[in-house]
Design a protein around this nucleic acid. Structure first.
Lengths: 208, 208
DNA sequence: CTACGATTTAAACGGTCGTTCAAATCCGTG
DNA sequence: CACGGATTTGAACGACCGTTTAAATCGTAG
């Protein structure tokens, strides 16, 4: 993912400040956005957590919305890489779905700060929102394909792939609302419990 | 539910303005909060949707936070009534869980405006937040009991009731993020698709 | 050491928004 | 009609926050 974009200021020449710093800011922003929501979190809050002044943020990002957009691009980039990797694997659909859920949970809880598609995208302006939605749709489509393939192969019970995909994504995305790093469950255990339940439900029944 | 509380102004005597009006305001507020989030939605926005001035809202509610709190109390009241009704029914656990999911989805999509525990409660001050969490926990506990009972009776596959409950609640609460009343699916169809998937049609699994 | 670009600071601005309040209006009762 | 409480208005306030900007500081190449 190219984290560095639209950073140019003063000199379009070498442009693009460190990038590491940009990621730090994104992490801090993601944590703040998750806790208080986009409008509830202040730019100053994001900066203070990194011991910098809020004015300084504007050296790395055009504005607050740009930070939110970068958060989404960053998360989506990782997510889509993961999706591509799983899809091209040689495995039955239920195994693919399980791997996807495990990696997704791990990613959300350990890498990003409980953050994925949770950070209210509606706060983005229409053009940026459209770009985010396009990539999220790509992820949705990939997941639906896996589910549909599983049904065709008879390894999943028949059903509406779209509804099942929404149910799975909802269950997983919701984790960031209740997860407590100090709680009794590790991210690993949560991932496995969710994978067990969510793909087990799909596999079961085989009706008739 | 007692919608009317903390309304008293000027005269503690008869107090409590119409109540109907209060519910109208709650509906409008819930819709605004869901779309833009608590901090993103303005008091003026809530009032304008009802063709009233924002100053007028303060005749019915102490402040913006009070409106959010009332939204939660209202939703939780209905939800807990539903839970009590289902729990005292004479039916196997899988049937109870199915009924609960169906009613929950119907409630969220048709009665409340895509609203339940979705309206960021973290925006509430600690004392109010504590009250909301207490009632939500009561609901969670009820659901977990049903799941645990189902496992004991062998009608559900063994697992961690807490994780399964979180998965179910996440899937259902997430619906408000993607539901489009103009879309191809009715709330009824969505409820059934989710119930089918989440509790399982033929509660197969039974491991071993 | 000096010079210069990269980075950071601190202060100020404009706008938005939640809240208050005194006055105006509405409406049923006597 | 006149009264009085209930409801609504409109304007004003004060605080917070996103953003801008000029100047200060840092770090490094010559």
């Amino acid at each position: 993912m190219d984290l560095n974009r639209g950073v140019a200021r003063r000199k379009p020449g070498r442009a693009t400040p460190s990038g590491d710093r940009r990621v730090e800011i994104l992490k801090s922003a993601a944590a703040a956005f998750r806790k208080r929501g986009y409008h509830g979190a202040s730019v100053d809050e994001i900066a203070s957590a990194l011991a910098m002044t809020k004015g300084n943020l504007y050296y790395y990002f055009r504005n607050k919305e740009d930070i939110l957009y970068a958060c989404h691009e960053y998360s989506l980039g990782i997510l889509l890489d993961l999706m591509r990797e799983v899809r091209q694997a040689d495995a039955p659909a239920d195994e693919k779905l399980r791997r996807l859920i495990l990696a997704f949970v791990h990613l959300i809880l350990d890498e990003l700060q409980g953050t994925a598609l949770t950070l209210d995208p509606e706060a983005l302006s229409p053009p940026l929102l459209a770009k985010v939605i396009a990539r999220r749709d790509e992820f949705d489509r990939g997941m639906r394909d896996i589910i549909r393939q599983g049904m065709d192969d008879g390894v999943f019970a028949p059903g509406d792939p779209k509804m099942i995909e929404f149910a799975v994504m909802g269950a997983v995305n919701w984790i960031s609302k209740w997860f407590d790093p100090a709680g009794p469950m590790t991210s690993q255990q949560i991932g496995e419990a969710f994978a067990d339940y969510l793909v087990g439900r799909a596999v079961g029944g085989n009706s008739e």
